[in-house]
Design a binder for these strands. Structure first.
Lengths: 209, 209
DNA sequence: CGTATGCTCAAACGATCGTTTGAACCGGCC
DNA sequence: GGCCGGTTCAAACGATCGTTTGAGCATACG
């Protein structure tokens, strides 16, 4: 069914991670089998268990490889604006949104955002716990800054709005990079335009009266 | 692993549909096996293929049973306000949101919203086509009314915002009914409060300058 | 009563799943 | 050369998947 190996460069581990990203995005974690995956990567079936231990560990490694860099970028961007007296909501939201869209610059990064949106919709407990323990501090720092900039909102009200905005952004980012652009719009301009779209939408959703 | 039959009332078909809703919400379409499903429903394994033909047809029937009623309610509510000169954005959004939260009144309805959110995140082509051909006209009617009430927005801009709002609402509705309420808040009051939350958020996201 | 019909049941089918095994291969080091 | 840790390979393991089968049961109708 799957024809030819898709990836034939890089180390075995990297080929597996790349193919996993593609197939997890297309068919989900259960739907993508290790046989399809290793065939697409051009490696032996046993290589997954040899290098990662199990399929579940491979899933975690797919997340870790991207989220370590993504959340580090977000925290660096947040640190530049957090706590300052003239910081705006736009600044904080850009710190959250822009790194994700820059990750989507290349195809495999865009595929990963699809994987992330899937994990977000699945209320799988083990995966949620993995994400919470490893990257929960990032959302906590952003939430604290939102609370500082929106003092008129009660805590339940703020959490409500953050939850809604996060849902919208995750959905939107999972589609970014998938759609075809007009030929005369550069990748950079398209990304900047999308960042502004999402930031303005998120500002409206967070700060409406 | 799954202990006792969960459902022991109603016809075989209804017991299967109820158990399918629960297990699809918990483990996804691939993750829930027909053996777990029929055991939870308290029916024989072969009953699924006898009554529905295949697992895929069962999935479609789970959607059809709920979405026929849900989208009919939405269209009825929309018809009451669409086209009128004094209709507001709030009215249209309530016509979209309230039927979904009323469906979530009982537990199984709330479970179905989780199933719907899963299908929304999975970019599965066959399922998307099923939803598009059977219920695409509903979203088309709502989109037309949004366009009427927001004439200052270009078409691409409007589609952008509708997509973002839909993502946020789908995510939020999939969580409604799952969370514990304070003991002193009635079900009715909680739902009305949630409707107002979501409507105000959606208005802000659609109509911001 | 006999039979037809709709449904349920235990059992089995072939396919595919994640994982394990043990031999083969490979570079570098004594 | 001889050996050795790291890696790849084909093959097989047991488990579980969706689906099919044919006998068994119940109810209704002549």
């Amino acid at each position: 069914m799957d024809g030819f190996p898709v990836n034939s460069s890089g180390s075995t581990k990297e080929r597996i991670l790349g193919a996993a990203e593609l197939l997890f995005a297309q068919r989900g974690f259960d739907g993508a089998s290790l046989r399809q995956l290793t065939a697409a990567a051009g490696v032996n079936l046993a290589a997954v268990n040899y290098h990662f231990g199990s399929k579940e560990k491979l899933v975690e490694e797919v997340f870790r490889r991207r989220l370590d860099a993504l959340n580090e970028s977000r925290l660096v961007a947040l640190a530049k604006v957090a706590g300052a007296p003239d910081t705006t909501l736009e600044d904080v939201l850009e710190a959250y949104i822009r790194p994700a869209l820059e990750l989507s610059h290349d195809n495999s990064g865009a595929l990963f955002m699809r994987v992330l949106a899937r994990a977000f919709a699945e209320h799988d407990d083990s995966l949620r716990q993995f994400l919470s323990t490893n990257y929960g501090h990032v959302m906590r720092q952003f939430t604290a800054e939102f609370a500082r900039l929106l003092p008129q909102l009660s805590k339940p009200e703020l959490y409500w709005r953050i939850d809604l905005v996060t849902g919208a952004l995750t959905h939107a980012m999972s589609g970014f990079g998938m759609i075809q652009r007009k030929g005369d719009v550069s990748e950079h301009a398209h990304r900047e335009q999308t960042v502004q779209h999402l930031v303005r939408f998120a500002v409206a959703g967070l700060s409406h009266p």
